[in-house]
Every structure is written in C-alpha cells, then in structure tokens.
C-alpha cells in the first residue's frame, strides 16, 4: 500500500436517479475511505447531477474507487482533479459570539477575508465567506480566538479551468 495519503478532489457527473448517491457513497465506504466533503447539485442538464467529493486516502485505493464509480450504471463520468487544474470554491457561514469589547476585532477579521455580515444581533453575528478551503480555514482559525457558536461549510466545489472537462 502506498503511504501517499492526501486529499483528493473528485468530480462525478451522474444521472439524477434514486439510489445514485448511495451507490457512490458505498464505493468509498466499502474500501474504507472516509468522505471529507460531498456536494450534490443539479447539472447544466436537468436530468443530471454534479457531485464534488473530497476524500483522503492512498492513490491506489482511489483509482479503484474511480473505476468502480465509473462502472455504475448511472454514472456518466468520474474524474480526479489536482488543485492546480481547477477553480475551487467553498462557502462558510460562521456564527460568532460578540460582546462590545470584541465586536470590532471580529469585524476586522471579516473585512480582511472579504466576508459579509449577513446577520447582526446583540450577542452574535453571522459571517458569510467564500473562497478556497484554505482561506476559509485561515479565517475560521482566527475566529476561534473568540467564541464560534456554530459553523456551517458547504464543502468544496470545483470546475476545471479552460478546455478541460470537470
């Protein structure tokens, strides 16, 4: 087994049929892979869905998963993409506890990461940020100095650059 354990980006184009998600998830779980994030949304063709999956594991195991997913009756394409060949974005909503003393500091962090304040209360505010997963990690880490009440992230979505197909 290869020791190269890193995070992989997979994009799957799949007919929008009952059970498709479970079949794909089973291809990972059966081989002991843990899915880190999974985004499903309608594709440009209404009867197809686009899935973006990030998962950690060795290359060998992942290649087998890609082949098994490709083999599924409902799957049109399953491709792995390196970080360099795609545009990758993620959205995060962070609910941070505030008191008058720290409010300014929190807003400064938000400003730095171009996050929007989408809800403002006496005791908390909700920030909305988009960008690469690494950028969101950085912002969340800074906010941890204050009290994060809740954190919701969409998981990564990717699109291949230029003429490449996602």
């Amino acid at each position: 087994m290869s020791k190269d354990i890193r995070t992989h980006n997979l994009s799957i184009f799949v007919a929008n049929r009952p059970g498709a998600l479970v079949r794909i998830a089973q291809a990972f779980s059966r081989r002991g892979f843990n899915i880190e994030s999974l985004v499903v949304s309608p594709g440009a063709r209404g009867d197809f869905s686009r899935m973006t999956i990030t998962a950690k594991g060795n290359q060998e195991g992942l290649e087998q998963i890609i082949k098994q997913c490709t083999k599924l009756v409902d799957v049109m394409a399953c491709r792995e993409h390196s970080d360099e060949e795609v545009v990758a974005r993620e959205l995060a909503l962070v609910k941070v506890a505030i008191d008058p003393e720290h409010r300014e500091l929190v807003l400064q962090i938000a400003d730095h990461f171009h996050a929007k304040t989408v809800d403002f209360n006496e005791n908390s505010l909700v920030l909305e940020a988009t960008g690469s997963s690494e950028k969101l990690d950085a912002m969340v880490n800074l906010l941890r100095k204050y009290k994060i009440i809740e954190l919701v992230r969409t998981g990564k979505v990717i699109m291949a650059r230029g003429d490449r197909q996602t």
Partner: peptide
C-alpha cells in the same frame, strides 16, 4: 430491500 441489496446487484429499481 432496495438499499439492503445495493452492494450485490449490478443495478436496482424501486
């Protein structure tokens, strides 16, 4: 049954 049998069928329908 649809979900129970999923890993052992080529395909399935409800």
């Amino acid at each position: 049954v649809f979900n129970l049998t999923m890993p052992v069928v080529k395909h399935s329908y409800l």
